[in-house]
Design a protein around this nucleic acid. Structure first.
Lengths: 339, 339
DNA sequence: CTGAAAGCGCTTACAG
DNA sequence: CTGAAAGCGCTTACAG
């Protein structure tokens, strides 16, 4: 194992001071450009690589961003992370990624780990049962910036990055109404989370606007598991007057529900039209293809990471009222096309 | 922003030396247990957090593991990463994750970044078109350990973690034969990759063993895209004597192919029985449910990370011949059940 | 069982 | 435009 070259080695060989070498390597304006050239050539030649730890220790920053997500193994989250990775990479930041597995307790533990890793900033999407942001107070006190994305919560000095879930929920429901549905069921998740609460509100708003009643019987709170989808299908089959439209706030769950409905003899979209949410790959793989809301995961990840990095570089302040809304899109496929 | 407490602060308040505080905090055996107690209480009280950068700089290690995968947004890879994260987290290692997007060029760039980040070790699954491991030679030279998983390549001093893809491919094909199929098509990916080459070998072996010919017309090399699946379905529909069995080395592609086949009037499994690979969630969401090979992603991630960490801690040497084989399982569902 | 001292590799305020 | 010097916060060989 060969020894690492340091700026001292370069300095010695070039009869310069380590200070000058350091400045040149960091493209400091005060250094003569010939000297810079000389130094960077030598550095290359000697296979020099900067020691991040020494630099971080000295600069008192880590060049690391912490990411806490509910789960890693979802198609949506993968695209988000992919976007974050891209941006962070380009800006020479590293990502520390951890998952809360939808548990507030694990989220707290993760926050603690991130704190001890001294991340420069935090990118968080909340677990299903998180009630408040108390466990992030250590970050707020230290002035470490945090951005919430997708599953957010209003918080002073904390940018929220979301789509307009209310409007999306409204559009999904309105679409079903436009296809002639008059009795629409909505399957959603924990209403502690903005994403589900807002979609539900949008659903209700669409119904009311069309003079239809909001019936508790037609609203199901689930965990979006495969089994939940099947259960909902069975329930529907047992109902005296089953719904003719179904809006599920998750594609995966919508897909399993469609399977269950078919087993129960329902024809989709004839008997019951279905709309999902997220535009996961699954939407185009089930039969009939699933109508859904396209959710810009990659973009959301990129924007979240970029905003945080801009803030860290002083290029953008994360202020009190800062909410970034991304565009979504209703994508109509066969599962809901009736007219 | 309050100042960070350091071991000097603790030492001063306790009238001890920083050396003793450092040792106590690291649970050094030579330190009196009362002193340890005293120090750790004080540290807690003062909200002390160890500075990893100073420690890493001094110890000349980074406590960081680099991970390079073909893509982040696959269901299989998510579970692998989830397993790695779990193990790394417990062992106080951080993960730097990057994706090659199936490109050998990007994989080289990633390797370079990892090298400059001075990762303690590397966990890699190869891109589709990678021909050799030259771009990792800097790591080999420096003695930085590397473990290959899933898409591997034989390499001195490099553990490979895989399932027996040949046997799995054989079983998938033998299962179709057992269901009465006599003309089986195989859709696979880049045969540069062991996973696809081996499954193909298994497929051929099963055919030969049953006295059936291996026909080039029945072997398709694809990228496993949705479109590839549809194209294969269309090709099948145009064949004078279409296959009665289909083994696709990817669930996602198998699913889109099933959709295409149905559009072309094929009934599954009656006209054509289908087997996929990986046991992605999609397998249980398509109709009919997809027979597939269950692939232990989470476990693979855990074992890869654990092996690397054990090696770094000197608990296990990654030796020349080290290949870890994980168990897989053929899961029979409706897409292939004919008897 | 505890301490003094050196050093890991950088960066930067200060001086010239 | 360049340098000398201090310091970031830890760890550890050596000494006692």
């Amino acid at each position: 194992m060969e020894k690492e070259t340091t700026i001292y080695d370069i300095a010695r060989l070039l009869n310069l001071s380590p200070a000058t070498v350091s400045r040149a390597l960091n493209d400091h304006p005060a250094i003569n450009s010939n000297t810079k050239q000389l130094i960077s050539n030598k550095a290359l030649e000697m296979g020099y690589r900067s020691n991040t730890f020494a630099s971080n220790l000295r600069r008192q920053q880590t060049k690391t961003i912490g990411v806490i997500v509910p789960r890693l193994d979802s198609s949506f989250m993968s695209t988000v992370l992919s976007g974050m990775e891209k941006v962070a990479n380009e800006a020479n930041y590293n990502l520390i990624i951890s998952q809360s597995l939808e548990s507030s307790r694990k989220e707290m533990a993760n926050a603690k780990t991130m704190f001890n890793s001294r991340v420069d900033g935090l990118l968080v999407s909340l677990a299903a049962d998180t009630d408040n942001l108390e466990h992030f107070s250590t970050f707020f006190r230290k002035g470490i910036p945090m951005i919430l994305f997708d599953r957010v919560m209003p918080q002073k000095n904390c940018t929220n990055i979301v789509i307009d879930n209310l409007k999306a929920g409204y559009e999904a429901t309105a679409h079903l109404l436009g296809q002639g549905c008059r009795r629409i069921m909505h399957v959603t998740g924990s209403v502690k989370r903005n994403v589900y609460a807002d979609r539900l509100k949008g659903y209700k708003m669409a119904l009311l606007e069309h003079g239809l009643p909001v019936e508790d019987e037609l609203i199901r709170l689930t965990d979006f598991t495969r089994q939940d989808g099947l259960d909902v299908a069975d329930e529907i089959a047992r109902m005296p007057s089953p719904p003719d439209g179904l809006f599920v706030a998750s594609d995966l769950c919508a897909a399993s529900c469609m399977g269950g409905l078919r087993k129960n003899g329902f024809s989709i979209p004839k008997d019951i039209a279905v709309v999902g949410f997220n535009d996961d790959p699954i939407a185009q793989l089930v039969e009939p293809n699933l109508t859904t809301i396209h959710y810009p995961g990659q973009e959301m990840g990129e924007i979240a990471a970029q905003s945080l990095i801009n803030h860290l570089n002083g290029l953008l302040r994360i202020s009190t009222t800062n909410t970034i809304l991304l565009n979504y899109e209703l994508i109509v496929r066969e599962s809901s096309r009736r007219v």
